[in-house]
Design a protein around this nucleic acid. Structure first.
Lengths: 344, 344
DNA sequence: TGAGGCATTCAAAGCGCTTTGGTTGAATTT
DNA sequence: AAATTCAACCAAAGCGCTTTGAATGCCTCA
């Protein structure tokens, strides 16, 4: 069933039917109802492509997920972020188009999206330091919004980020207050912008107490469970092992816990752990009392908000760029406690 | 830059340019090259919507993720499945359109997709027992493929599934061979089809050895870490606790391990654990020797294959329905060992 | 009574592509 | 030399919608 047929069935012109369905004022209430009823009865839905062609809007947002062929890793926060964004889209009548793209094809893909005009805007995931995609998109001239930021980049753009620096600063402070001196940072890959900011938060907190960061205690890797596990194992064999760990995600934190317990130690007593917690739906941090002390910020909520910001920008392209900095909450769980007395 | 402009620039008709770009034979090689060069130079990309309108193909596949508003859980396998499917799509030139839909709106959304014609086919995720979506889609008449199957449903359709029953049967057998008699099953929600099949595998294996399944040992819940943790805690307080656990995903298995170690026991010695492992990229089961003994089947690969099957079906709608049953591999890790001697 | 205003409705153009059904002129055949 | 074939190209229709610019008929008001 298409417009033409529906109009014929109603004895009306396509114009009137189209207007009736799209809520234009120049249609009498009586016919509007008649049209609505008929449309409903026949299950009429305007063809997206035809409508898009006529209006010039795709009513779709593109999500480009960078994928590196080496380590075929899907960012675990991705599902939750998408779920949040999806909520916004379905309310606003947008579709979500997902594409995974290898790093070296990013530019090409953006230009393609622009040319093919199958999206009205783009959400950029996992920005790197001084991410070239941002300048690229500005140049191409397509609305976009970034989940995170890119340091070293001037020029305004839409972004939403967690205050990574302050979160890690506070987490480090919290450990320092408990008497910990040697705190091991299990960061994400330093090419990622968020990891860079987190390290600075950690370093600043130490510096504020006159402690020089020990490079051996600052790791930066892909955030897997094994990463946490292995790191603790290695650290335990050093002369002066850390008494606390600060991890960038709950996944390596789980590995840290495993290594601690396998060594016959008790997390929260012998060794303290704080993690950043993206509040993923399938990896909740305990229930009543959180398992890990954590700096928490919901990725799902970030998705919801960033999608809203992008849509707003699309509807008002000349408006100022929208930015939002979320503060993480520091919630105390069972994984932290005072630094143990020196036994040596 | 659109076709018309490009054609004008070349002094050719739109027809010829279109044909040159789409590889039709009735264009001389010389002009074809000339056209290709010009298109490249001006960054010409055919407008998706216009092309779709003309061809009647959307060149997009819809993924509908059921979302229950109660427990806002995003299926953790989702990211990896999508990543796999995405690989196939990008090779075949398809876009992926994602929508999350509450259970009660599913039918409406499918009809909408059909009416709006913005997808050429649909991938159905997480089928339930006798899932009504399948009959619905057959009736609506839109190509689709299911990741999993729906028991109690006759009539052919495209699906790809892991042999859940045989996987759990083999896992249970493995534990029985090690002398375990009381094996606790931590299944997913029994409304899900895969959970139903897994339970049957478990029960059959027990029955084959003359053991009547103990209902108290068969749990079925949302597969969280806490679920695994709590269950073991509860079980340990019973008169006759299980000596082995069989979990439906690596996430509850992590919870099981935590409870075991917190109780001062050793996994693989005092208590055995087998899990089904979807081979998620961010939750790898150890590296050299797997942490958990597991029945493994890559979800990412499933995504790749199912997407291929659907595209094949779209290109040849009259062909027979495609089905594929994958066998999981049973890999031995460090989490299983002989049942401990009775001490009572 | 006739001009102007208003509420409804419509025909047709246009969005950018593919595809049908030609046309043209050169090469080949008879 | 006329008829046929063929390669290469083109004009125009059509996909299903929105939107522009008119048309229609009924009221209202001077």
């Amino acid at each position: 069933m298409n417009l033409k047929e529906l109009a014929a069935k109603l004895g009306l012109s396509q114009t009137t039917v189209s207007r009736a369905l799209n809520g234009y004022p120049e249609v009498s209430e009586a016919t509007r109802l008649r049209v609505a009823a008929a449309a409903d009865k026949h299950g009429y839905r305007p063809n997206t492509r035809a409508r898009g062609l006529a209006t010039g809007r795709a009513m779709a947002i593109g999500h480009v997920i960078p994928i590196s062929s080496q380590h075929e890793m899907v960012n675990p926060i991705f599902g939750d972020f998408i779920a949040g964004a999806g909520e916004t889209y379905s309310k606003a009548g947008y579709d979500m188009i997902l594409s995974q793209v290898e790093d070296h094809r990013q530019e090409q893909v953006y230009r393609e999206m622009r040319g093919k005009r199958n999206v009205d805007g783009i959400i950029v995931h996992a920005p790197k330091m001084g991410d070239s995609r941002i300048t690229m998109l500005q140049e191409i001239g397509i609305p976009f919004a970034v989940h995170g930021r890119a340091s070293e980049l001037t020029g305004p753009y839409n972004w939403l980020d967690v205050n990574n620096k302050s979160a890690f600063q506070r987490a480090t402070d919290f450990l320092l207050d408990l008497g910990h001196k040697r705190i091991c940072l299990l960061n994400g890959l330093e090419s990622m912008d968020f990891a860079f900011r987190r390290r600075h938060g950690y370093e600043d907190a130490l510096a504020a107490r006159g402690i020089t960061p020990d490079p051996d205690l600052m790791l930066a890797e892909e955030m897997t469970e094994t990463y946490g596990y292995r790191t603790v194992q290695k650290m335990m064999q050093t002369a002066n092992p850390p008494t606390a760990y600060l991890t960038s995600s709950i996944i390596p934190a789980i590995g840290v816990r495993r290594a601690i317990e396998e060594a016959g130690l008790k997390m929260g007593k012998d060794i303290s752990v704080i993690t950043h917690d993206d509040d993923l739906s399938y990896l909740r941090n305990g229930e009543d009392v959180p398992q890990f002390t954590a700096t928490r910020s919901s990725v799902r909520d970030a998705g919801r908000q960033l999608a809203e910001m992008l849509i707003q920008q699309i509807n008002n392209p000349s408006g100022p760029p929208l930015t939002r900095l979320l503060e993480a909450e520091l919630t105390v769980g069972r994984s932290t406690g005072p630094a143990p007395e020196r036994t040596a």
